[in-house]
């Protein structure tokens, strides 16, 4: 018997253990809704650890979620940056369009105030030399232009066409030394010739000493000479100097048109027809 027990010792122990476990299980079945001392003990022991594990789990999950979010944010950031670039470009284009619209509106107003037909042109180049003042426009003989025609902008006189090719023309600016336009002081009707002085300046020459000219007076075209229509703004008087001798006074005029910011101009096709 003892021999038999020794031989099947392992199986017997396993069977006993299983039986004990079964008995333990069956004894606890009737109190399955209530925690016994063992359960309570384990639960009490584990409760703080649960919290720590939960917090750790939360932390890890948070880090992972943050990492995933970061990846998305990076992607989103890239997209947003691209969008900002596109929107900025559109904003600039819109600003440019608004400015062009304003300029063209003013040019159109001027065009409608002229009786003569006029051709709008864009400035496409400037003079290659610092001591001459000419610009190149994108209209030429093919558009009906010819030498001598007056060129104006919304603010006033720009100059006169001097060299006309088929698709482009040169404009001699009011400020060039070779330029001269008959002018008249709007307030006092004093006459003179507005001549270019280079460097964005002009002078009203041949105005008699006794004529009434004051700083701030507006000089307009007199229409004499038949090139420019009468009444177009030429510039504003910035300095008047009357010497002790001589029959003329020295009058400096600042052109009404800002030559350096000129982008569009009107070429008047017929003279002496200003409204």
């Amino acid at each position: 018997m003892l021999e038999l027990l020794r031989k099947y010792r392992i199986y017997i122990i396993v069977g006993v253990v299983l039986l004990a476990a079964f008995v333990f299980y069956s004894l606890n079945l009737k109190n399955k809704e209530r925690a016994n001392a063992f359960e309570r003990g384990v639960m009490d022991l584990m409760a703080p650890l649960y919290g720590v594990a939960d917090r750790m789990n939360g932390g890890v999950s948070g880090i992972w979620a943050d990492y995933l979010d970061l990846l998305e944010v990076r992607q989103e950031n890239k997209q947003l940056r691209e969008s900002v670039k596109v929107l900025n470009t559109r904003l600039l284009e819109a600003g440019e369009a608004v400015a062009a619209n304003e300029r063209l509106k003013r040019l159109l107003e001027l065009k409608s105030s002229l009786r003569a037909p006029a051709v709008a042109a864009s400035v496409i180049g400037e003079d290659g030399s610092p001591w001459f003042k000419t610009i190149v426009i994108d209209r030429g003989a093919a558009d009906g232009l010819r030498e001598g025609l007056p060129v104006v902008a919304s603010d006033g006189v720009v100059g006169q066409l001097v060299k006309v090719a088929a698709g482009s023309s040169r404009v001699l600016l009011l400020t060039d030394h070779a330029s001269g336009v008959a002018g008249i002081v709007q307030r006092s009707r004093a006459r003179g010739v507005v001549k270019g002085k280079g460097g964005g300046r002009c002078s009203l020459d041949f105005t008699l000493r006794e004529e009434d000219v004051k700083v701030g007076d507006i000089v307009v075209t007199s229409g004499i000479g038949g090139v420019f229509p009468k009444g177009l703004p030429l510039g504003e008087v910035t300095m008047v100097k009357k010497g002790e001798y001589g029959i003329f006074q020295t009058v400096e005029v600042r052109p009404k048109v800002n030559i350096t910011r000129l982008e569009e101009v009107l070429v008047i096709l017929q003279e002496q027809l200003y409204d």
Binding site: P130, W131, H177, K195, G198, G199
Partner: peptide, 11 residues
């Protein structure tokens, strides 16, 4: 081109 010398010499 009166006075061109002023612009030319200055530049």
């Amino acid at each position: 081109a009166d006075g061109v010398y002023a612009t030319l010499l200055a530049g």
